[in-house]
Amino acid sequence: MTTITLVQGDITREHADAIVNAANSSLLGGGGVDGAIHRRGGPEILEECRRLRASHYGKGLATGRAVATTAGALDARWVIHTVGPRFSHEEDRSELLASCYRESLRVADELGARKVAFPAVSTGIYGWPLDDGARIAVETVRRAGAAVEEVRFVLFDDRAYEAFAAQLR
C-alpha cells in the first residue's frame, strides 16, 4: 500500500526517485512548478523534452497523460511530466485531473520509482479549486494500486497544505 505524506515547501528541493512536473503540453518549460523544475533541473531536462517533441510527441503531450525524462540537477532520477486540465465551469474535467495522477503513478511503476513527489496539479494558474483538486489527488492516489511506496504531496503554502491535510483526515 502506498503511504501518502504531506510537505510544505519547494518541490524542486525534494529528494525522491521521481518528481512530478505540472507541465504544459509543449513540454518546453513554462511558469509555476514547470518553470521552477526546468530552471533548477538544468538544460538536460529541456534537451530530453525536445527529443520527445521531435519523436513521439510532435504535437505535445495530451492533457491527462504523463511521460518521464531525466531529472538533471534535481535530487531525483526522473521528472514525470503531466499536463493538467484547465478548470472549467462549463465542462467537468475531473477525470482528466485524476488521469494525471494515475498516469504519473503508472509511469513511476514502469520506472521502478519507490518515492514520488507531486505538486497540486492544476490548482495554480490552471484555476482548479484547491479543495476539489486535493480531493481528486488524494482519492486517485489511494485507489491507484501503484507499487510506489510513498507519494509525497509537496505543497507550496499553508492553504494548499491544509486542503490536502483535510482530505487525509
Results as ranks from 00 to 15, higher is better:
83 V>A: 06
126 Y>T: 00
112 G>F: 13
116 V>T: 11
108 A>I: 00
144 A>M: 04
76 A>N: 07
128 W>G: 07
96 L>Q: 15
112 G>C: 11
109 D>Y: 04
112 G>P: 13
129 P>D: 02
76 A>C: 08
75 D>A: 14
76 A>W: 04
107 V>S: 01
103 E>S: 14
82 T>E: 00
90 E>V: 12
101 Y>M: 00
143 R>M: 12
102 R>D: 09
99 S>L: 00
110 E>W: 09
96 L>V: 08
69 T>S: 15
116 V>H: 09
85 P>V: 01
70 T>S: 12
139 E>A: 14
96 L>M: 13
80 I>P: 02
78 W>T: 01
146 A>E: 10
94 S>P: 03
93 R>Q: 06
143 R>W: 07
106 R>Y: 05
113 A>H: 12
77 R>D: 14
132 D>Q: 15
87 F>G: 05
82 T>D: 02
104 S>F: 02
68 A>C: 05
101 Y>E: 01
122 S>K: 07
79 V>Q: 08
113 A>E: 14
74 L>T: 01
72 G>M: 06
79 V>E: 12
123 T>D: 09
92 D>V: 06
84 G>F: 00
86 R>G: 06
132 D>E: 15
102 R>V: 05
151 V>S: 08
101 Y>A: 00
108 A>M: 03
77 R>A: 14
123 T>R: 06
150 E>Q: 15
94 S>H: 01
78 W>D: 04
105 L>N: 06
73 A>V: 04
108 A>H: 01
76 A>E: 04
135 R>L: 14
97 L>S: 05
117 A>K: 11
125 I>N: 11
148 V>N: 10
115 K>Q: 15
106 R>I: 07
105 L>Y: 06
141 V>G: 06
75 D>L: 12
123 T>C: 14
146 A>Q: 05
116 V>K: 12
144 A>K: 10
75 D>N: 13
141 V>T: 11
106 R>H: 11
108 A>R: 01
140 T>L: 00
72 G>Y: 07
123 T>L: 07
150 E>R: 15
77 R>M: 08
122 S>E: 05
108 A>Y: 02
130 L>A: 14
118 F>S: 08
141 V>F: 11
136 I>M: 05
109 D>P: 02
92 D>Q: 03
83 V>E: 00
142 R>H: 10
79 V>A: 10
116 V>I: 09
98 A>I: 12
131 D>N: 15
93 R>D: 04
78 W>L: 04
132 D>P: 14
111 L>C: 03
92 D>R: 04
148 V>I: 11
92 D>I: 03
73 A>E: 07
149 E>I: 11
132 D>C: 10
151 V>P: 10
84 G>S: 00
67 V>C: 08
135 R>N: 10
119 P>N: 03
95 E>Y: 03
67 V>H: 09
106 R>A: 09
93 R>L: 08
145 G>D: 10
136 I>N: 02
81 H>E: 02
103 E>Y: 06
148 V>F: 08
108 A>N: 00
98 A>W: 07
69 T>M: 13
96 L>E: 14
110 E>D: 12
146 A>D: 07
91 E>S: 10
112 G>K: 13
133 G>L: 03
72 G>K: 04
123 T>F: 05
132 D>R: 15
91 E>I: 13
